[in-house]
Design a binder for these strands. Sequence first.
DNA 1: CATAGTGTGTACTATGTAGTACATACTCTA
DNA 2: TAGAGTATGTACTACATAGTACACACTATG
Lengths: 118, 118
Amino acid sequence: MAKAFGSYVRERRERRRETDPRFSVRQLAQRIGVEPSYLSKVERDDVAPPSEATILRLAAELDEDPDVLLALAGKVSSDLQEAIRKRPELFAALIRELKGMPDQAVLRLVREVRDGNW
Amino acid sequence: MAKAFGSYVRERRERRRETDPRFSVRQLAQRIGVEPSYLSKVERDDVAPPSEATILRLAAELDEDPDVLLALAGKVSSDLQEAIRKRPELFAALIRELKGMPDQAVLRLVREVRDGNW
DNA sequence: CATAGTGTGTACTATGTAGTACATACTCTA
DNA sequence: TAGAGTATGTACTACATAGTACACACTATG
C-alpha cells in the first residue's frame, strides 16, 4: 500500500474533532451508518477499508475528495469504471499513454478539454 | 448488463473451432487452466465471469482485445485502475470531462497525446 | 459396438468482503 | 462517586467470488 487509508481518516477526523465534538468515532460512525467499533478498526487499519458507498459517505462528512479517499482505499470510483467499460479501447489507450507523463501534462490536457479550445 | 460476456466468448470460440479443433471447451479450458465444466458454465452465463487473470489468458488464446473482454465482464484492467489511483484528482477530472464526449473527440485526443504535437 | 471426444448438471469448497453485536476499559465532570 | 462519553477487543455472520471434482449423456468413427 502507498499510504494507509485508516490513519489518514483518523488524522482528518481528529482534526475536525478539535473544533467540533460531533466528530467522535461514535457520532461519525452513526452519521455514516456503521458501528463505532467498525469505524475504530478501520481507522487503525485493523481491517480492510470499507465499501465504496461507505467511503463516499465518509468523504462527504469529512469534506474530503471522494476520489482521493477511494484511491487510498485501493479503489476507483464506479462511475469512472463505468465510463471506461463503455469505451474500453479508447480509454485504455488514453490512460496508458498518459500514465508515464508528468502531472503538468495531464493537467494541461484536462484544461484544454474543459475549455474546449482544441 | 450491456452484453453477455459468456455468449460472446462462446461465439468467438466456436468461430475458431470451425477451423481449429483445439478450440473445444475441454482443450481451451485446459490451456487457460480451468475445468471444462467451469468454462462451459461461463460461456452459458450460468455463473459470473471469471477473474481478471483468467480473462486475460482467455483473451490471449482467443486473440481478443483484453480490455474489451474485461469490459464485457464488467471489469477494468488493474493496471488502468492503478494509474488512476496514483493520481486520482487528475484522472477523475479527465475521465469525467470526456465521458460525455463523442468517440471522435476522445480518439483525436489519444492521437494528439501519442504524436506529442501539443 | 466399444471408445474417444463432445458438452453439461450437480454438489461442494476455500477465501475474501463488509460488516454487526456486545462487552470492556478508560476519562472527565457534575 | 455515579454517569456520560470516549475508544476498543472479541466473536460472529451473511453474502460474493472463483472456482474444483466427478458423473452423466450424446455423437461420430474406426
